[in-house]
Amino acid sequence: MAFYHSARHREALSIGLIGVMIALPALLTACGQEFYIGFASRILIFALAASSLNLVLGFGGMFSLGHAAFFGIGAYAAAICLRSGITDALLVLPLAMAVAGLFALLVGALSLRTRGVYFIMITLAFGQMAYYLVVSARAWGGDDGLALVGRMTFAGFGLHGEAAFFHAVLACLGLSMLFLGRLAEARFGRVIQAIRENETRMEALGFPVFHYRLSCFVIGGALAGLAGALLANLTGLASPSLLQWTQSGTLLVMVIIGGVGYLYGGLLGALVLLCLEEVLAGFTVHWHIGLGLLLLTIVLYAPKGVAALFAKTHD
């Protein structure tokens, strides 16, 4: 199947796009729309989070509904780092990824023993467990979330300006996408996709299926943690609602709108959904109805776009 293949074809397009992205804050400032620089950072961060879910779901064929937990844990890890005086992004971000990855290792090790509906529900339940833990941990602000003291720095430079921060986020997203593209082409990527297509055969061939899947799950968790850490820095708050399962649902919707298993699926989905939210929410507070109907239409009348991948794995 042609997933993750498109990486090379789009190289030229990507370079042009990156140029526009780098200039975006200056353009927005020129138009007097500084507010939208933060909004653009938000889109990029969610693009990263959705891409990390896409790795687990589209690429690894693991239907996790607890992905928001890793996202939120990354945010909390960043907040705790900043509170304890660790401010350099080169320390904060890897630490956040490590913590999120570690939790993913725990959840994955337990959940990957199961299949199908069980896996979906167990990841969901573990995600909620993390949510309740954070909500009732008074040391981390409980339901209030944990406010950040300032933003992280990069090699001594502050990232307080919205433009500077946007560029930092852009760099993180760019590097992550590059990594994901390479991963898909590498041996690891080929094996994990083969496992998705036919697990039994790969097992018979002697591949340690469980370990491959677990590694994929952990990488996805760590990248979600990176996105979470960035979001906490953007909003200045690590909030428990980032871990809630509805957040997992939102990430899932992004991946599906964008295209499950396509390298740029998460990116596109985040862009579309967040812009849709910005526009529709201006019209009516009840815009969720519109979104719900749109999703239903996608599921019922555009099933190929949604489910090409999973239809294969289930037969």
């Binding site: 199908g116 649902g249 109805i289 999703l295 019922l300 949604v306 999973f310």
Partner: peptide, 26 residues
Amino acid sequence: LYKRDHLSQVLATFALILISNEAVRL
């Protein structure tokens, strides 16, 4: 939905949640 994969089922029923929550609010 029965004959569809889990992904479609999750997505469709998640959409139902969004719709029913907003409908009740309305």
